[in-house]
Design a protein around this nucleic acid. Sequence first.
DNA 1: GTCTTTTCCGGCAGATGGAA
DNA 2: TTCCATCTGCCGGAAAAGAC
Length: 527
Amino acid sequence: MARIKENPCGLSQEVTLAVLPRLYMEEVVTELRRRNISPDTDTAGNCREHLLRILQDVMEQEYRGAVTGASSDLGSSLDVLHLPQGEATAECNPQNSTTRNIQATSSDPCSLLDLEDSDLSNDGVEQSQRAVQKQNSRQNDSVTADAVPVSVTVNENFGWSISSKDSSTARRSTERDEFDNTVQHRQSCGLKREPVDQNRDGTSENVIDRCRNCSCSFHRDPNIPTVMAEDLFASFGNVVEQGQNENFGLVLHELVKQVAENRRAIQEIRDQQQQRLHEPDVHVYGGQEEDQNGRSRKRRKTTHKFKVPDNKCRDDVRKIYKSLLEGDNDFNGFNLNETLTSRYNQQVLQTLHWEIAKEYGGEEKCPFSPMEVKDAARRYYRSQRDDRVRREKGKLMAHRNAMRKEQRLMQKVHRRRKALEKCKDSWSDRTKQMAAEILAKPYQSSESSGEETQDPPRFTVRRLPWESTALRKLKDSLDEICPQRGAARVLSSDFSDRTVPEGTPPWAVKGVYQGDLEESMSDSLED
DNA sequence: GTCTTTTCCGGCAGATGGAA
DNA sequence: TTCCATCTGCCGGAAAAGAC
């Protein structure tokens, strides 16, 4: 009970954000109301997703506790949160040629196609806004009286910023931004404009707003004018006093998030298309087989192959993932009960990407593309799932034992290869060729793991029943050059139950198993 | 350097959904 | 209905990382 008093908003910290997407609409509404946020459900319709995002933001803020009384502040601002047909409007000053109409449409989010049509890759920010405007024009009858003039710069990093001379406005905007991962820059930071992608003559088509106080930075297309909010406030009167800036900030916040999500989706599609261009045949087909009608039918051998990310990228993903898990934050890692494409896991992927970019000092300095990071994270997710499945099925130990055994066999091969390398000058070509033929796992005696628990550990070696004297002698010779170290090996009287591998050279197989070829081969080894 | 543990990776098969 | 692409679960095994 004491805990509830401490946390009047209901959900405790133990209830992670992961459960949010599973809430029913009524539960979402209840949770919002508990925070003095009254969604107008009559008009909100099926805006569950929208309300969920609001609730999630509020909860994140509560959890972080970064802003004292922020909840109540936000709550009061959202006291009546109307979402008529899922739309709320922030309209630009029509008198200002550089401003744009921006309309948030929660029930009808920015169409991916619209954004795609606008070709975001070149001058994405402006065009994305145009795309939004395009959507706005379809619904421009519903410009609300609450509209607040603003121009927002959606930067390449999917961040956004507004500025105002009104310190309280700036502060509140910033407070809300701080718990939104898409916002990477604090309002209070001073920005220093630096050219990027300089040409040889020192000119630059792009500038970057680099923060004086922290490492964050934004790319900016110089073609996209940034209209300072104070100008707009001046044009429209002091909307802060009218208490509208809160709604505006929220709407803008949601809008920019939506645009950012769409842009990310587009970028993913582009990356995939680019990948297909470079790897035109990602679908590998095996041999053909005939169906019942005798028609030739292709059988797909493998499915879509993900690009194998760089080792460093995978390492970074794992390290960041682990450090986030251990850190004092809301990061709880993947939800292995959900698919990777679930909303929650996609957020995890996004967080990883942001954190890695942050680690390198910004998106532009990060050596890995978002797609690479995503692929690496996907691998890691799959590994963790595999591991969990094995653990749940009680096969984890069996897998480990099998791997141990496998690794010992591999090490044996490596050791014998090293031995062959050492004696390459003293052995005849014929002998070296024979040794090379059998330096593979199938030709090594198995080392049973049955007595591994002994202290000191001791392995039982079971020889291959089919190996010829020539093979035995050859392996012994290699072992003399590079002896087996470590745990003691005890030769078992039992033989391994492995059969003759396919493609085994005849000289390596005992006569009973394969003709009587070993004698002559064995002779050649004598020298 | 040895051995173990963790992570990564490819292949196969079944399920699913869209297109023809 | 059939065909095909994709996703997912599962498995075996290779390789890297970690512990000693």
